[in-house]
Amino acid sequence: MYIHKKPSWYLPDSGVTPQAAYLGRRKFLRTLGMGAAATAFTRVPGISATAGFPDTLNPSFKLSAVKLTPYDLITTYNNFYEWGLSKDEPSKLSNQGWKTDPWTIEIGGLCANPAKFAVNDLIKAVGGIEQRNYRHRCVEAWSMVVPWDGFPLAKLVTLSSPKPEAKYVQFTSFLDPKICPAQRSNDFAWPFTEGLMLDEAMNELAFLATGIYGKPLLNQNGAPIRLVVPWKYGFKGAKSIVRIDFVATQPKTLWNQYAPDEYGFLANVNPEVDHPRWSQRSERVIGGGFFSSRQPTLKFNGYEKEVAALYAGIDLRKNF
Protein backbone atom coordinates (compact mmCIF):
# COMPACT_ATOMS: atom_id res chain seq x y z
CA MET A 1 0.00 0.00 0.00
CA TYR A 2 1.33 3.41 -0.94
CA ILE A 3 1.64 5.76 2.01
CA HIS A 4 2.41 9.44 1.61
CA LYS A 5 5.55 10.37 3.50
CA LYS A 6 5.38 13.93 4.69
CA PRO A 7 7.38 15.72 7.38
CA SER A 8 5.90 15.60 10.85
CA TRP A 9 5.00 19.26 10.82
CA TYR A 10 3.18 19.06 7.51
CA LEU A 11 -0.19 20.78 7.32
CA PRO A 12 -1.15 22.22 3.94
CA ASP A 13 -1.81 25.95 3.77
CA SER A 14 -4.68 25.18 1.42
CA GLY A 15 -6.38 23.43 4.30
CA VAL A 16 -7.35 26.63 6.07
CA THR A 17 -9.78 29.22 4.88
CA PRO A 18 -8.43 32.76 5.19
CA GLN A 19 -10.30 34.84 7.73
CA ALA A 20 -11.13 37.39 5.06
CA ALA A 21 -13.04 34.76 3.12
CA TYR A 22 -15.11 34.01 6.19
CA LEU A 23 -15.93 37.61 6.85
CA GLY A 24 -16.72 37.91 3.17
CA ARG A 25 -19.09 35.00 3.41
CA ARG A 26 -21.26 36.80 5.94
CA LYS A 27 -21.34 39.82 3.69
CA PHE A 28 -22.40 37.55 0.86
CA LEU A 29 -25.21 36.16 3.00
CA ARG A 30 -26.42 39.60 3.93
CA THR A 31 -26.46 40.76 0.36
CA LEU A 32 -28.52 37.71 -0.47
CA GLY A 33 -30.97 38.90 2.13
CA MET A 34 -30.35 35.82 4.24
CA GLY A 35 -30.24 37.84 7.42
CA ALA A 36 -31.10 34.89 9.59
CA ALA A 37 -28.38 32.71 8.13
CA ALA A 38 -25.80 35.47 8.57
CA THR A 39 -26.66 36.18 12.19
CA ALA A 40 -26.54 32.47 13.00
CA PHE A 41 -22.77 32.86 12.92
CA THR A 42 -22.66 36.08 14.88
CA ARG A 43 -25.09 35.32 17.69
CA VAL A 44 -24.24 36.69 21.11
CA PRO A 45 -22.76 33.75 22.99
CA GLY A 46 -22.83 32.98 26.69
CA ILE A 47 -19.98 34.66 28.50
CA SER A 48 -17.88 32.40 30.67
CA ALA A 49 -16.35 33.25 34.01
CA THR A 50 -12.76 33.69 32.91
CA ALA A 51 -12.66 37.11 31.28
CA GLY A 52 -9.90 39.60 31.97
CA PHE A 53 -6.78 37.47 32.13
CA PRO A 54 -4.23 38.78 29.67
CA ASP A 55 -1.88 36.21 28.18
CA THR A 56 0.75 35.80 25.49
CA LEU A 57 1.72 32.92 23.27
CA ASN A 58 4.21 30.59 24.88
CA PRO A 59 6.88 30.43 22.13
CA SER A 60 7.65 26.77 22.91
CA PHE A 61 4.15 25.89 21.68
CA LYS A 62 3.97 28.00 18.55
CA LEU A 63 3.82 25.06 16.10
CA SER A 64 5.67 26.67 13.24
CA ALA A 65 4.43 26.20 9.67
CA VAL A 66 0.92 25.51 10.94
CA LYS A 67 -2.14 27.57 10.23
CA LEU A 68 -4.65 28.04 12.98
CA THR A 69 -8.26 27.02 12.41
CA PRO A 70 -10.47 30.12 12.17
CA TYR A 71 -12.33 31.08 15.34
CA ASP A 72 -15.69 30.79 13.56
CA LEU A 73 -15.11 27.12 12.85
CA ILE A 74 -13.73 26.24 16.28
CA THR A 75 -16.86 27.72 17.85
CA THR A 76 -19.47 26.20 15.50
CA TYR A 77 -18.19 22.67 14.91
CA ASN A 78 -18.40 21.00 18.29
CA ASN A 79 -18.90 17.62 19.86
CA PHE A 80 -20.58 18.41 23.17
CA TYR A 81 -23.20 15.71 23.59
CA GLU A 82 -24.87 17.46 26.51
CA TRP A 83 -26.00 20.01 23.92
CA GLY A 84 -26.96 17.85 20.97
CA LEU A 85 -25.61 15.04 18.82
CA SER A 86 -24.79 17.08 15.72
CA LYS A 87 -21.84 19.42 15.36
CA ASP A 88 -23.84 22.61 14.89
CA GLU A 89 -26.19 22.11 17.82
CA PRO A 90 -23.92 22.93 20.79
CA SER A 91 -23.24 26.47 19.55
CA LYS A 92 -26.99 27.06 19.55
CA LEU A 93 -28.38 24.96 22.40
CA SER A 94 -25.67 25.73 24.96
CA ASN A 95 -26.37 29.44 24.62
CA GLN A 96 -30.03 29.36 25.55
CA GLY A 97 -29.86 30.23 29.20
CA TRP A 98 -27.02 28.02 30.46
CA LYS A 99 -24.89 30.15 32.81
CA THR A 100 -21.20 29.42 33.11
CA ASP A 101 -20.48 32.51 35.20
CA PRO A 102 -20.05 32.31 38.17
CA TRP A 103 -18.45 28.85 38.24
CA THR A 104 -17.01 26.82 41.07
CA ILE A 105 -14.55 23.98 40.65
CA GLU A 106 -13.79 21.54 43.44
CA ILE A 107 -10.54 19.66 43.83
CA GLY A 108 -10.59 16.62 46.08
CA GLY A 109 -9.87 12.96 46.53
CA LEU A 110 -6.48 11.67 47.57
CA CYS A 111 -4.62 14.95 47.97
CA ALA A 112 -3.20 17.07 50.78
CA ASN A 113 -4.89 20.29 49.71
CA PRO A 114 -8.49 19.70 48.71
CA ALA A 115 -10.09 23.01 47.82
CA LYS A 116 -13.05 24.75 46.27
CA PHE A 117 -12.27 27.60 43.87
CA ALA A 118 -14.21 30.20 41.99
CA VAL A 119 -12.63 29.49 38.62
CA ASN A 120 -11.00 32.94 38.47
CA ASP A 121 -9.37 32.38 41.86
CA LEU A 122 -7.96 29.11 40.57
CA ILE A 123 -6.36 30.95 37.66
CA LYS A 124 -4.82 33.41 40.09
CA ALA A 125 -3.63 30.58 42.35
CA VAL A 126 -1.73 28.91 39.48
CA GLY A 127 -0.20 32.22 38.39
CA GLY A 128 -2.31 33.25 35.39
CA ILE A 129 -2.65 31.88 31.89
CA GLU A 130 -0.67 31.52 28.69
CA GLN A 131 -1.49 30.69 25.08
CA ARG A 132 -0.48 27.49 23.29
CA ASN A 133 -1.19 26.29 19.77
CA TYR A 134 -2.16 22.64 19.85
CA ARG A 135 -3.21 20.18 17.20
CA HIS A 136 -6.65 18.80 18.00
CA ARG A 137 -7.51 15.36 16.61
CA CYS A 138 -11.01 13.96 17.02
CA VAL A 139 -11.58 10.19 17.18
CA GLU A 140 -13.95 10.77 14.22
CA ALA A 141 -10.91 11.47 12.03
CA TRP A 142 -11.05 15.24 11.70
CA SER A 143 -8.63 17.79 13.07
CA MET A 144 -8.11 21.45 13.89
CA VAL A 145 -5.30 23.61 15.22
CA VAL A 146 -6.47 25.59 18.22
CA PRO A 147 -4.78 28.44 20.10
CA TRP A 148 -5.84 27.61 23.64
CA ASP A 149 -5.48 29.97 26.59
CA GLY A 150 -5.05 28.32 29.96
CA PHE A 151 -2.50 26.77 32.27
CA PRO A 152 -0.65 23.46 32.55
CA LEU A 153 -2.58 20.82 34.47
CA ALA A 154 0.67 20.01 36.27
CA LYS A 155 0.41 23.32 38.13
CA LEU A 156 -2.95 22.33 39.57
CA VAL A 157 -1.65 18.87 40.48
CA THR A 158 1.33 20.38 42.28
CA LEU A 159 -0.91 22.86 44.06
CA SER A 160 -3.17 20.06 45.29
CA SER A 161 -0.27 17.85 46.35
CA PRO A 162 -1.65 14.35 45.66
CA LYS A 163 -0.99 11.57 48.18
CA PRO A 164 1.34 8.74 47.18
CA GLU A 165 -1.57 6.33 46.70
CA ALA A 166 -3.16 8.61 44.08
CA LYS A 167 -2.51 7.09 40.65
CA TYR A 168 -5.16 8.72 38.46
CA VAL A 169 -6.91 12.05 38.03
CA GLN A 170 -10.65 12.06 37.38
CA PHE A 171 -12.46 14.97 35.73
CA THR A 172 -16.19 15.49 36.16
CA SER A 173 -18.23 17.83 33.98
CA PHE A 174 -21.30 19.79 35.01
CA LEU A 175 -24.60 18.07 35.76
CA ASP A 176 -27.68 20.24 35.44
CA PRO A 177 -30.69 18.33 34.07
CA LYS A 178 -32.90 21.32 34.75
CA ILE A 179 -31.20 23.42 32.10
CA CYS A 180 -29.70 20.61 29.99
CA PRO A 181 -32.47 18.44 28.46
CA ALA A 182 -30.09 15.71 27.28
CA GLN A 183 -29.08 15.03 30.87
CA ARG A 184 -32.69 14.15 31.74
CA SER A 185 -32.36 10.92 29.76
CA ASN A 186 -30.34 7.85 30.64
CA ASP A 187 -28.86 7.54 27.15
CA PHE A 188 -25.46 8.37 28.53
CA ALA A 189 -23.95 7.98 32.01
CA TRP A 190 -24.14 11.65 32.96
CA PRO A 191 -22.32 13.57 34.24
CA PHE A 192 -19.51 13.32 31.70
CA THR A 193 -16.35 11.91 33.26
CA GLU A 194 -12.84 11.45 31.97
CA GLY A 195 -9.52 10.48 33.47
CA LEU A 196 -5.76 10.51 33.10
CA MET A 197 -2.94 8.60 34.73
CA LEU A 198 -1.16 10.85 37.21
CA ASP A 199 2.07 10.91 35.18
CA GLU A 200 0.08 11.89 32.08
CA ALA A 201 -1.48 14.72 34.07
CA MET A 202 2.01 15.86 35.07
CA ASN A 203 3.24 15.96 31.45
CA GLU A 204 3.90 19.54 30.37
CA LEU A 205 1.45 19.24 27.45
CA ALA A 206 -1.64 18.42 29.53
CA PHE A 207 -3.52 21.68 29.76
CA LEU A 208 -6.57 23.22 31.39
CA ALA A 209 -8.01 25.69 28.91
CA THR A 210 -10.06 28.72 29.83
CA GLY A 211 -10.02 30.46 26.47
CA ILE A 212 -9.46 30.31 22.71
CA TYR A 213 -7.79 33.05 20.64
CA GLY A 214 -7.43 35.15 23.79
CA LYS A 215 -11.17 35.18 24.48
CA PRO A 216 -12.85 33.34 27.34
CA LEU A 217 -14.20 29.93 26.29
CA LEU A 218 -17.67 30.03 24.78
CA ASN A 219 -20.22 27.66 26.28
CA GLN A 220 -20.05 25.31 23.28
CA ASN A 221 -16.29 24.86 23.77
CA GLY A 222 -16.66 23.85 27.42
CA ALA A 223 -16.76 27.13 29.36
CA PRO A 224 -15.35 28.17 31.66
CA ILE A 225 -12.67 25.52 32.07
CA ARG A 226 -11.90 22.32 30.18
CA LEU A 227 -9.22 19.72 29.72
CA VAL A 228 -6.98 19.64 26.62
CA VAL A 229 -4.73 16.63 26.05
CA PRO A 230 -3.31 17.20 22.58
CA TRP A 231 -1.76 13.75 22.08
CA LYS A 232 -5.08 12.02 22.80
CA TYR A 233 -8.36 11.94 20.90
CA GLY A 234 -10.53 14.97 21.55
CA PHE A 235 -13.15 13.13 23.60
CA LYS A 236 -10.65 12.90 26.48
CA GLY A 237 -10.99 16.68 26.90
CA ALA A 238 -13.69 16.97 29.56
CA LYS A 239 -15.59 20.22 29.16
CA SER A 240 -17.11 22.56 31.74
CA ILE A 241 -15.35 20.81 34.61
CA VAL A 242 -16.82 21.05 38.13
CA ARG A 243 -14.67 18.44 39.94
CA ILE A 244 -11.15 17.14 39.75
CA ASP A 245 -10.37 14.14 41.98
CA PHE A 246 -7.20 12.23 42.68
CA VAL A 247 -8.00 8.53 42.83
CA ALA A 248 -6.18 5.23 43.35
CA THR A 249 -7.80 3.15 40.59
CA GLN A 250 -8.62 3.82 36.95
CA PRO A 251 -11.77 5.94 36.98
CA LYS A 252 -14.85 5.12 34.92
CA THR A 253 -15.20 7.39 31.93
CA LEU A 254 -18.34 8.11 29.93
CA TRP A 255 -17.19 7.06 26.47
CA ASN A 256 -15.30 4.04 27.71
CA GLN A 257 -18.42 2.82 29.54
CA TYR A 258 -20.57 3.51 26.49
CA ALA A 259 -18.43 1.48 24.05
CA PRO A 260 -15.25 0.02 25.55
CA ASP A 261 -14.25 -1.58 22.25
CA GLU A 262 -14.29 1.79 20.52
CA TYR A 263 -13.10 4.31 23.09
CA GLY A 264 -10.20 3.12 25.17
CA PHE A 265 -9.11 4.72 28.42
CA LEU A 266 -5.76 5.82 27.01
CA ALA A 267 -7.21 7.01 23.67
CA ASN A 268 -3.83 8.10 22.36
CA VAL A 269 -3.93 9.30 18.76
CA ASN A 270 -2.56 6.35 16.82
CA PRO A 271 -2.71 5.94 13.03
CA GLU A 272 -1.83 2.25 13.41
CA VAL A 273 -4.92 1.31 15.41
CA ASP A 274 -8.19 1.66 13.54
CA HIS A 275 -11.50 2.56 15.04
CA PRO A 276 -13.83 -0.43 14.44
CA ARG A 277 -15.76 1.62 11.91
CA TRP A 278 -13.10 3.70 10.19
CA SER A 279 -9.38 4.05 9.65
CA GLN A 280 -7.34 6.41 11.82
CA ARG A 281 -4.58 6.56 9.21
CA SER A 282 -5.55 10.03 8.01
CA GLU A 283 -7.72 12.95 9.02
CA ARG A 284 -9.80 15.68 7.42
CA VAL A 285 -8.62 19.18 8.23
CA ILE A 286 -11.49 21.41 9.28
CA GLY A 287 -11.47 24.60 7.24
CA GLY A 288 -10.45 22.95 4.00
CA GLY A 289 -13.89 23.39 2.49
CA PHE A 290 -15.77 20.95 0.35
CA PHE A 291 -12.84 19.27 -1.36
CA SER A 292 -10.60 19.30 1.67
CA SER A 293 -7.90 16.71 1.27
CA ARG A 294 -6.83 14.45 4.08
CA GLN A 295 -3.52 14.60 5.83
CA PRO A 296 -1.74 11.67 7.41
CA THR A 297 -2.41 11.27 11.13
CA LEU A 298 0.71 11.38 13.26
CA LYS A 299 1.45 9.03 16.13
CA PHE A 300 0.53 10.75 19.40
CA ASN A 301 -0.84 13.48 17.14
CA GLY A 302 2.69 14.69 16.45
CA TYR A 303 3.72 14.81 20.12
CA GLU A 304 5.60 11.51 20.14
CA LYS A 305 8.84 13.08 21.36
CA GLU A 306 7.13 14.61 24.38
CA VAL A 307 4.92 11.73 25.50
CA ALA A 308 6.11 8.37 24.10
CA ALA A 309 8.13 7.70 27.27
CA LEU A 310 4.93 7.65 29.32
CA TYR A 311 3.93 4.42 27.58
CA ALA A 312 7.18 2.49 27.68
CA GLY A 313 6.30 -1.21 27.98
CA ILE A 314 2.59 -0.66 27.31
CA ASP A 315 1.10 -2.43 24.28
CA LEU A 316 -0.69 0.47 22.58
CA ARG A 317 -2.57 -1.89 20.31
CA LYS A 318 -4.25 -3.58 23.26
CA ASN A 319 -4.42 -0.42 25.33
CA PHE A 320 -5.82 1.85 22.64
Binding site: L29, L32, D72
Partner: peptide, 8 residues
Amino acid sequence: TGGLGADP
Protein backbone atom coordinates in the same frame (compact mmCIF):
# COMPACT_ATOMS: atom_id res chain seq x y z
CA THR B 1 -25.35 29.87 1.60
CA GLY B 2 -22.64 28.53 3.90
CA GLY B 3 -25.24 26.65 5.91
CA LEU B 4 -23.27 23.39 5.91
CA GLY B 5 -20.92 24.49 8.66
CA ALA B 6 -17.24 23.90 9.21
CA ASP B 7 -16.99 20.63 7.29
CA PRO B 8 -19.51 20.95 4.46
